[in-house]
């Protein structure tokens, strides 16, 4: 069924792009934590702030966005939600 194939293709595309975002935030940004620490944010050095709070909000946003998109996709392709 080409319909459901499209569903899986879109799911996979969504998953991969969010996964790459996660990789960037988690590993690439933290690699430069020492440099980012030079910037000050809300009284924190930014590198410290990201590790203690900022990244965690981004994680939450990634999951929230994924769930929202998947709900739309489920409805669009009439996927049984069991």
């Amino acid at each position: 069924m080409p319909e459901t194939n499209a569903y899986w293709r879109k799911t996979r595309w969504l998953t991969i792009s969010l996964f790459v975002l996660w990789l960037l935030v988690t590993f690439v940004m933290n690699w430069y934590a020492r440099e980012i620490n030079e910037i000050s944010f809300l009284g924190f050095p930014l590198g410290f702030y990201m590790g203690a709070q900022g990244i965690l909000f981004i994680y939450l946003a990634i999951i929230w966005f994924y769930n929202r998109r998947m709900r739309t996709l489920d409805a669009e392709y009439g996927i049984k939600n069991e």
Partner: peptide
């Protein structure tokens, strides 16, 4: 020590997506 905070929360993104 923030490695623990980041690691133990980042894992849930993998759980959600994968």
């Amino acid at each position: 020590g923030l490695a623990y905070i980041i690691g133990w929360t980042g894992g849930f993104v993998l759980v959600a997506l994968l």
